[in-house]
Write a protein that binds this DNA or RNA. Structure first.
Length: 483
RNA sequence: GCCCCCUUAGCUCAGUCGGCAGAGCAACGGAUUCUUAAUCCGUGGGUCCAGGGUUCGAGUCCCUGAGGGGGUACCA
């Protein structure tokens, strides 16, 4: 038994092609024009010869003639195959074509009697015989699970899916362009790290045989990018994957892409300006009015984004101050948070999430977080309990975070050690002290602003897809035997 | 992790009160030289997710499990 069972009726056609002396898996087919361009260049009064290649998406056979719809990445065109025009031998080969096959065609571009722009084919090449049928033409491939598992089919069948990933590519291009113009250079730092740092999340663990050491897939690139600041790379960014061994839902995939950047001699207010400008410019590229739908919501990307002071917002939403530990815990219990085994600062964060963050729809910077939640962040000069940090929320999602980066090596060490002391509700969440990073800091890191933005979520907003799996080409799925 | 829903032909789906397993598309045979989801005539196609139970009889009711979807929880 082959691993993938071809459909019998397609094997028959495959054999017939070979019997006719045709290689069903063609070869180079040069000098084609994108179908979209062919259609744009059409002039009714002066028919031209054209050459196109693509997938047969539909086929209407009528005895001695048939119409095939041929689709490439740029568009779709009708091709007319006629016995009279092709001759007995070629028409016989044409009879073996089916929806899903890839063909190259040569012919004259004119209109049919009904006015459809059509390639009147006088020669063609079989480029690939499909041994599995494409999805049914009315409803197509709709089941989300099947769409993710067979993303190839999803992409060539569902126009809007292909479009979404085209947009994603353009968004990433846009981010790179934006940052280059501001003097940032792109770098790549380790995805496999001896110590997972930069965020508190459960890491994936792997093993390197030659060195016989465990390595962690990174949960964040932060500590490496900061080493580059020490090294004198004053404006750096990295667009790459992070890996977190956590749950999967509409906003979370175990591997996800972020852009993380550092700007020497700046701080979190520079990052705020940068983030606002970047996100706004991406939105404006899609809608000149800067208003985009997201599910039931309409998001207005007009500047300036709203600013919300963490402690003021907390007081306003809850009617008591964030440092009233007793009332914070009481509120947490009422919200159904199991607060007993959590530290004060984590309980506060839960209550803040439930009462403030979850209700944010329009682009909003939540500014000045409790320092206890932000160990890599420079505290405010006038109040060490407050960190120079903001989180950006849009459409109910956390889009990113930024700090004035902590560059005091001794304070950093102290904060690392405090993290170790805090009772750890997640046994698997590693909290370690990265001595090598501390050593780098000790050589002197310039004060800097740093920021991370979730690119998948950004794409969700820009393409109006409320599920992260719609914007990741191959989201993680449970493997399935029968396929 | 917990709650709710879904799983029937290659695909998209219907299936009433527990009583012979259904449609469209796709496939196969035929007709058709300007069609547009082509049309017309004909044919074949099922481990009803898996296992167990109730019943004279289960796609349908009950239990267990698997996979998926949605929600919720977790994710400095």
């Amino acid at each position: 038994m082959p691993r993938v069972q071809p459909e019998d009726f397609r094997l028959v056609k495959l054999q017939e092609l070979r019997r006719l002396g045709v290689d069903p898996y063609g070869g180079r087919f040069p000098n084609t024009q994108p179908i979209g361009e062919i259609l744009l260049a059409f002039e009714p009064e002066s028919p031209k010869r054209v050459r196109a290649a693509g997938r047969i998406t539909n086929l209407r056979a009528m005895g001695k003639a048939s119409f095939l719809d041929i689709k490439d990445r740029s568009g779709s065109v009708q091709a007319f195959f006629q016995h009279k025009r092709l001759g007995q031998e070629k028409f016989r080969i044409h009879d073996q074509l089916e929806p899903g096959d890839l063909v190259g065609v040569d012919g004259e571009l004119t209109k049919t009697r009904t006015g459809e722009i059509t390639i009147f084919v006088d020669d063609f090449t079989v480029l690939a015989k499909a041994l599995l049928s494409p999805p049914e033409k009315w409803h197509g491939l709709r089941d989300p699970d099947m769409r993710y598992r067979r993303r190839s089919v999803d992409l060539f069948t569902n126009e809007e899916v292909a479009e979404c990933f085209l947009k994603r590519s353009r968004i990433v291009d846009g981010i790179r362009e934006f940052l280059r113009q501001r003097g940032f250079i792109e770098v790549e730092t380790p995805m496999m790290q001896p110590l997972p740092g930069g965020a508190a999340a459960r890491p994936f663990i792997t093993h390197h045989n030659a060195l016989d050491i465990d390595l962690y897939l990174r949960v964040a690139p932060e500590l490496y990018l900061k080493r580059l600041l020490v090294g004198g790379m004053e404006r750096v960014f990295e667009i790459n994957r992070n890996f977190r061994n956590e749950g999967i839902d509409r906003q979370h995939n175990p591997e996800f892409t972020t852009v993380e950047l550092y700007q020497a001699y700046g701080d979190y207010s520079d990052m705020m300006e940068l983030a606002e400008c970047l996100v706004r410019s991406l939105a404006l590229q899609i809608d000149p009015g800067g208003k985009l739908p997201f599910g039931e919501m309409e998001i207005n990307y007009a500047a300036p984004f709203k600013r919300l002071d963490y402690f003021n917002a907390f007081q306003e939403a809850n009617g008591f101050p964030a440092d009233d530990v007793g009332r914070v815990r009481e509120k947490a219990r009422r919200l159904g948070v199991e607060e007993a085994r959590l530290g004060d600062e984590l309980v506060l964060d839960r209550v803040f999430e439930a009462t403030v963050e979850d209700h944010i729809v329009q682009p909003t910077f939540v500014v000045d977080y409790p320092a206890a939640l932000s160990p890599l962040t420079k505290p405010k000069p006038d109040d060490p309990r407050v960190a120079q940090r903001w989180d950006l929320f849009i459409g109910g999602m956390e889009m990113g975070t930024a700090y004035s980066e902590l560059n005091d090596p001794q304070l950093q060490e102290k904060k690392f050690l405090q993290q170790l002391e805090g009772e750890d509700e997640e046994q698997e969440t590693l909290r370690t002290v990265d001595d090598d990073f501390l050593r780098a800091l000790a050589y002197g890191m310039p004060p800097a602003g740093g920021m991370g933005l979730g690119i998948d979520r950004l794409v969700m907003l820009m393409t109006n897809n409320p599920a992260i799996r719609e914007v990741i080409l191959f989201p993680l799925l449970r493997p399935r035997k029968e396929g």
